[in-house]
């Protein structure tokens, strides 16, 4: 067989399988993968939505989970607002997510610019250390950070949680911006300097606009880390009024008065901000990550 294959004239692309067959196989593989992914992602999301918008009595009517809603009700959301601290949790989440996203992105832009534009001793080591620290699981950092914040008296503050979340997201953001700035030609800046622009002015007029896809990706990443965080909020915040929505929602399951309907409703609310961001900024996300070699 081997020798016959060798004698037979090779088809296009050096394979004995014709190119048309290859293309067909490739398409089938893509469809199957897409189908599997969508089953595992879409079905849970659908279940969540279906339960969230029906009254609990309708969902479990007749002893079976009722997944084809007959009508829509906001009852679960009303219960969330009136009987739980969901609004407070949500506000907490928004505050720490916004501050951590801002802090992490700012750090990443500054570090990325510095790492690519200035030479200093130990630069490669610093860059490697940053990437290495990204390998840690958040829980590894959580206990030492708890000790630090406890000692400093920062527990139960937005400030502490912002720092803790930034500690998780910043390494990857820095690495991303470091990669991104390597693709921004230094000649662009030099050309601005020769024309009389100061370094700061050049950063504002040239570097930041050109690096926009990069820092938007970094910001999206930092947002996702902070918004979805559970570990850090659980460790740093111990008072009910300081809980974020992820921690708060997890506690609903322990309460007798809150059922599946409300839990799914709060899950739906948690999912909305990331969904909007993915929807409106996906183009930037892809641009930024493709530079980081993460296409």
């Amino acid at each position: 067989m081997g020798s016959r294959g060798g004698i037979r004239r090779e088809r296009a692309a050096g394979s004995i399988v014709s190119q048309r067959t290859q293309a067909r196989l490739k398409r089938i593989a893509v469809y199957v993968t897409a189908l599997l992914v969508s089953v595992f992602v879409t079905v849970p999301v659908y279940v969540m939505v279906a339960i969230a918008i029906q009254a609990p009595s309708d969902v479990f009517a007749g002893g079976q989970v009722h997944l084809l809603p007959d009508g829509v009700t906001l009852r679960n959301f009303v219960v969330l607002v009136t009987e739980t601290s969901s609004v407070r949790y949500f506000t907490n989440s928004l505050i720490v997510t916004a501050s951590s996203t801002l802090l992490s992105t700012a750090l990443a832009v500054a570090a990325g610019y510095g790492l690519t534009r200035f030479d200093f001793r130990g630069k490669t080591l610093a860059a490697r250390a940053v990437l290495f620290s990204y390998m840690f699981s958040p829980i590894v950092l959580a206990i030492p950070l708890y000790v630090i914040f406890f000692t400093l008296g920062f527990l139960n503050s937005y400030f502490a949680l912002t720092l803790a979340l930034t500690a998780i997201s910043a390494p990857f953001c820095i690495w991303l911006m470091w990669q991104y700035f390597q693709t921004v030609p230094i000649a662009l800046e030099e050309s601005a300097w020769v024309r009389g622009a100061s370094r700061w002015r050049t950063v504002r007029d040239v570097v930041l606009p050109v690096a926009r896809p990069g820092y938007i990706s970094a910001a999206i990443f930092a947002f996702a880390v902070a918004w979805n965080d559970f570990t850090m909020a659980r460790v740093v915040m111990s008072r009910d009024e300081m809980y974020t929505i992820t921690v708060g929602a997890s506690l609903f399951l322990d309460r007798v008065s809150i059922g599946w309907g409300e839990t799914m409703a709060v899950s739906l609310l948690i999912a909305i901000p990331p969904f909007c961001i993915a929807l409106f900024l996906q183009q930037y996300l892809l641009q930024g990550f493709s530079v980081g070699g993460l296409e």
């Binding site: 662009l188 300097w193 050109v210 926009r212």
Partner: peptide, 20 residues
């Protein structure tokens, strides 16, 4: 003197136009 303070103009090999 820093580049900002010389009345020189430069055209770069990479052309260096601002894409935005």
């Amino acid at each position: 003197l820093p580049p900002q303070e010389r009345n020189a103009a430069m055209v770069f090999q990479s052309i260096a136009l601002y894409p935005h």
